[in-house]
Each structure stands twice: as C-alpha cells, then as structure tokens.
Design a protein around this nucleic acid. Structure first.
Lengths: 194, 194
DNA sequence: CTGAGTTTTCAGAATTTCCTGAAATTACCA
DNA sequence: TGGTAATTTCAGGAAATTCTGAAAACTCAG
C-alpha cells in the first residue's frame, strides 16, 4: 500500500508514539503528514493507514491540540486537509514548547505552591529543601529556554553547531574584559582562539 | 500517613509519571526517595505508599534501569536500601541521557538506515528528502548535546544563566577577531558589551 | 429549506498496561 | 546444610487506554 521507505517511517513513528506522549494512531498520522508532499484529507489518511474514520478524526484533533498539524483548505473542495509545517525548525520549536507545557509547567506550579507553605514540623524541613532545589533547577532551565526560544533560527543553529566551544568564547571574553592589553597582543589572541 | 507537603509532592509525581514515560507507582516511589533524608528499603516504601510489595519491587527495578535510583547497603542490615543522588544536576543529566536513549536514539538509527536505501521510484524522493531534513536536525541536536554534557556543572550553570546573552558575546567575539583595532578602542568595546 | 457530503461524538468492544498475591528464587546466617 | 529473611517472578484479575461503528451534528450548494 505505502511505498517501503514511507511505510517503515510511518510504522516507526507509530511504535515511538507512546514514548512521545501520544498513541500509535497519532504517531502514524503525524508521520504520514510529515512526509506527504501535499496536505492530506482524512479519507486519504484512512485509506493509507487503515484506521477507522473516527479514530483518524480524533488523532487529527489531538495533533491540532499540539499545534503540530494545521488545517488547510483547498479551493473547490469542502473537505478539510491537514499539513505539517515544512520547516523542521518550526516543528522542533512547537514540539518542545508543547512538551514543556505538558511535562514541566504543571510541576513548576506545584513546586511554587509547595514552596510557599510552611513545613508541617521539622519532619518536612528536609523535604521542602529538596523541593526547593528542584524548583531552582527547573527555573534555571525554563529561564534559559524562554530566552533561547526567542532567538531566530540562524543564530540558534549557529549556537548549536558551536556546541561546548561557546565555553572557550566565554573565557576568551572574560580575559578581554578583564585585561584589555592582552587582547591587543596578537600572539595572546591566537592562543585564546585555539 | 505522609506529612502534607511530602504527600502532595508524591501524588503529583504519580500523576505526572505517565507523561514522563513511566507509571504512577514508579513516579511515586521516585518522589518518595527523592525527598527522603535517608535511603529507604522496599518495606518502608510499601508502608508509606500502600502498593503491593511486588509492585514496589518492579518499580525499583525500573528506576534502577533508568539509573535514577541506586542500591545502598546499610551495615548490619540485609535488606536493600535505595536512594537518589543528592545532587540535582546529576539527576538532570541522568534523566536527559536516559530519555534521549529511549526517545531519540531509536529514531536516529532508523533514519540513518532509511537514508541509505534507494527511494522506490520518484514517489519516494520527497519522503526521503523530508527524512533527511529530520536526520540533519537530530544530528545537530545530538552533537550539541554530546558536547554540552561533557561540560562540568559550574560552566554549564554559568552558560545556562547567561541564556540568549551568549549571542551578544559571540557577536562581540566576531567583531574582535574580525577587526582588532576596533577592540583596542575603549569606546567601541563598551558599546559591544551593552 | 433540503439533502448530500463531511466531521464529530460517544457507548462499548478490543487491547494494552498495571497491579496483586502466591510461589519460586536468592542470599545469608548459624 | 537447613532455615529464615528478603527479593523476584509470573499468571491472571483490575484498570486504563485505544479503537470502532453507528448516530448525531454540522456545512454548504442548489
């Protein structure tokens, strides 16, 4: 039915689905839409994947809830068509944002809530301290994320491909701002750049 | 049974468990161990959470499989005790590593596999190009991750708290390496540092 | 309006996952 | 080696989730 590479990809996404927070149907539908050169309508998805019409309808709704799939209308066709963004970085941003919303935000708000309450006796002192550690960590991470997600794709990609080498750049900068003279010395500069 | 803050935290982790790739039992056991000031043995967990002994045993095994919990032996006590690392950054590293192993590595290897196969006719050209896009993105991300995970905690935290401001540092560096004279000029340097 | 085409809802069947108690296994002491 | 404490395994019951078909609801051209 599906050509072999497409089939393999779709089946893999179906299997992985559960690890990514949705089910087989949703995973396969997403994979199919991701690969499709054109938006697909629900019946085309039914034909290709063999799920019931209602299951596909629910799967599409869930994918729209994740903002991973958008509704497209074709001229002279009453049926709804669905597509994934063609830009993969856009997809990544959406995925991360939605997973954060589901996986970390609820915990963040519970931890903030609990941090404000008085510990019920000395027994909970330690527990509350542990929660505070976790809260600090999550807040550090989400602040970083909120910051980074505002970067445009080009800079983001540049930053990613630099990897841990940013470290060196930072240390380089420290040196410069610390003692300007060193920077003016070409030999020292070359050493810093490695 | 459990003091109120502890209880709230444990129940929350139980609920979140399914979103994080494990079940209620595992989530609650982890939460309890995380908060505990001392390693706990299986019976203590049974007492506090009310799950069956066998369920706790399986949950602990799963947590050990994730490397999130380690076995501890107390002197003069035959029973196994369990603890989470006390350092929260260590926990984060483990969690990310294990999730990557489960959630991205399988897809990475499938995509590499499929990238090598010849498309079955022109119908699959587009599909294979899409897969290639995804592969490139995942490889970029995992390379970045492999790089960053080698950083020590101190530098990592520094980098995180810098957030998108690294950007400025990078541009600052570009200017310096591009035209040294400008850097030597204190006025221009001040402008770059913002 | 009407009615064909399309999408959504939803009760319950099918499937999967979770959890338990009983039995088996392991570890260790005397 | 026998006995006891501790842990693990596992078959099957309980619970949760996924999936379906039928019916309801919606949409729009005529």
């Amino acid at each position: 039915m599906l050509p072999p590479l497409t089939q393999a990809f779709v089946l893999h996404f179906g299997e992985m689905g559960s690890r990514w927070g949705f089910n087989r149907t949703v995973g396969q539908i997403y994979a199919l839409l991701f690969l499709a050169p054109e938006p697909l309508n629900a019946d085309q998805i039914v034909d290709q994947l063999g799920f019931s019409r209602s299951n596909v309808s629910m799967g599409l709704k869930e994918l729209q809830g994740w903002n991973l799939v958008r509704l497209v209308h074709k001229p002279h066709d009453r049926r709804d068509h669905f597509a994934t963004p063609s830009d993969i970085w856009t997809i990544l941003r959406t995925l991360v944002e939605e997973r954060k919303k589901r996986e970390v935000d609820p915990t963040l708000s519970v931890l903030r809530e609990l941090a404000m309450q008085a510990p019920a006796g000395p027994a909970e002192q330690h527990a509350q301290a542990r929660m505070a550690d976790m809260l600090t960590l999550i807040e550090t991470l989400t602040r970083w994320y909120d910051d980074v997600k505002r970067m445009d794709d080009k800079r983001l990609i540049k930053l990613l491909s630099l990897g841990a080498k940013v470290q060196r750049v930072l240390e380089f900068k420290d040196k410069i701002t610390g003692r300007t003279k060193t920077v003016a010395d070409p030999a020292a500069r070359a050493a810093n750049e490695g």
